[in-house]
Amino acid sequence: MKRSNAFQFHSGTSIFHRLDPLSKLAWLIGVSLLAFGAYIAWIQIIISAIVLMTALALAQLRPLEIIRSTWPFIVACLSFFIIQSLTLPGTHVAFTIGSLRIYVESADYALASALRIYTIILSSMVFVRTTDPRDLAIALVTQMHLPYRIAYAFFIALRIVPTIESEIKIIRAAHAVRGVVKSRSVVGRIGEMKRYAMPLLVGSLRRASMMVMSMEGRAFGAYPQRSFVDAPHAGPLGIALMTVTLAAVVAWYAALMLGFVHAIYVFAPA
């Protein structure tokens, strides 16, 4: 599976697929808040493990699928870990590589920092992979009382996003046919971005305006309210997930504020 397809809805029958979008959105926000609470490795390991187990068990994503979909992020997080472990200062030497000293504090902070980034990316992937954008738009209207025209516009935009990659390939091919050589350098790639941005925007807006015309032709927006045949609603499982997430966030920040847990690594001297 290509990474471009990773952050895109795939239908399924997992527990997360069956949950309503807003319960999952609350879970996503909760994970983000938990992950940003502290820069300590053991805490981030626990949060990462929980999110990974959720991806494997509740969203039924295969391990190989997760690795293939997020490998650029894994490489980036490993880079963070190595660079920060090597460069950050510390007081307690964990081990040495030649003349290079690796400190306990810096390695701990670096691991926490890298895991935090990966946790957030993985949780976003779980949400997007298991949530139909149409259900999300409907839930925003029925459960969060957002004006339905805004929710539907967002839905249109989300539908166009997965086509961006293929659109870029078409533009690149069109440029190649006309003799524009693909650049390998960073400066060249920035130039390419500039060349691609305009046709990409024009193409997306053109398709969107066609959709708008079609929708308005069917009297979309004629009434201030809109009804839905199959509106998602929070079931017992969704309510349980939201309650657990909220309780975890409140307990976590209370522990941080009351000083039961330190927000940054504190190495106890022997």
């Binding site: 516009a153 967002f154 249109i156 807006l205 969107a208 708008v212």
Partner: peptide
């Protein structure tokens, strides 16, 4: 609204 959504999302 769609223009705002497309530009914002892209």
């Amino acid at each position: 609204i769609v223009i705002m959504a497309i530009i914002g999302v892209i």
